[in-house]
């Protein structure tokens, strides 16, 4: 749901908030700081302690001593590599499908059918309203047998699950550039539609597409509900099944997948930031 709120909103909010420091006479000040410390302490422990516990559990053996055994044992566990590569394949297929479907659609709507944006807003919010558990119920009933026999049915449904994040990301990216001028310039220079899309629009959408891609990958790598009910051993399903056998190894895999995803996200966000900073410098006034 992160991308529902555009980045710009944060910046605006940050700029407008009251500067408590600038009011030296306020007697309230110490009290505010006091409750703030409590809030930060509680929130910090609630959010960081489980992370610490998960990491510590991953680096422990059964006797409770520090050990790398769980990490080292991961690759040789039965079913791990199948599950890992299945999840990667699903992530790749989902990402490609989502981009091929959404980049032209979102671009076209921005350029030619601005009135359709409200329709797109509505349709792409639906996967948040319809819970995955209900959606997979209908999908497993409606899908033809040959499709149900393939793991890529999951990819097809993950495209739907990714729509809210991907569309909002692309929508924000498209709103940030002067699409019309770019396209008109390209067209008047004799560029065809396809080459305009590839050489003019896509490079300008790179940051938005990158963040949409990462969100999609994170979604596919972490999705449990649909995969488990469709009976495919993707990475999360495998972790859950394997936890009955060795909880340390299962937790280690889970924490590693988490850290991997977060690193990827951080990377994208920092790329995104440097990109938008450059854009701002170039346009000057913004």
């Amino acid at each position: 749901m992160a991308s529902l709120i555009p980045e710009i909103a944060y910046e605006e909010v940050l700029g407008e908030l009251p500067e408590v420091k600038s009011d030296p006479q306020s007697r309230r000040l110490p009290r505010i700081r006091y409750w703030r410390v409590i809030v930060f302490f509680l929130a910090g422990s609630y959010f960081l302690l489980p992370l610490y516990a998960g990491l510590r559990f991953s680096f422990e053996n059964d006797a409770g001593h520090f050990s790398f055994y769980a990490i080292e044992a991961i690759p040789s566990q039965t079913g791990f590599s199948q599950a890992f590569f299945l999840s990667l394949r699903l992530a790749a297929v989902t990402t490609v499908l989502t981009m091929v479907l959404m980049v032209p659609t979102a671009t076209y709507v921005h350029l030619k059918l601005p009135r359709m944006r409200r329709v797109l807003d509505f349709v792409t919010i639906l996967p948040i309203v319809i819970p995955p558990i209900v959606l997979i119920l209908g999908v497993l009933h409606a899908a033809p047998l040959w499709l149900r026999a393939s793991p890529y049915l999951l990819s097809l449904v993950y495209v739907i699950l990714a729509l809210p994040f991907v569309y909002r990301s692309l929508d924000a990216g498209l709103s940030a550039i002067d699409l019309k001028t770019l396209v008109e310039a390209s067209r008047s220079l004799g560029g065809k539609w396809v080459s305009t899309l590839i050489h003019v629009i896509l490079p300008n959408l790179r940051a938005a597409m990158l963040s949409a891609t990462v969100l999609t990958i994170a979604l596919v790598l972490g999705e449990f509900t649909m995969a488990s009910l469709d009976l495919w051993s993707t990475l999360p399903v495998w972790i859950y099944q394997f936890s009955q056998k060795d909880a340390h190894i299962a937790t280690a895999v889970s924490m590693l997948s988490l850290i991997g995803t977060w690193l990827l996200l951080t990377l994208i966000v920092s790329l995104d930031r440097s990109q938008s900073r450059r854009m701002r410098k170039r346009t000057g006034t913004l």
Partner: peptide, 17 residues
Amino acid sequence: VLANFGGINLTFMFIAS
């Protein structure tokens, strides 16, 4: 990140703590 978090990772982290 955390608003979209859930499932197996969250479960393990809380069992471990």
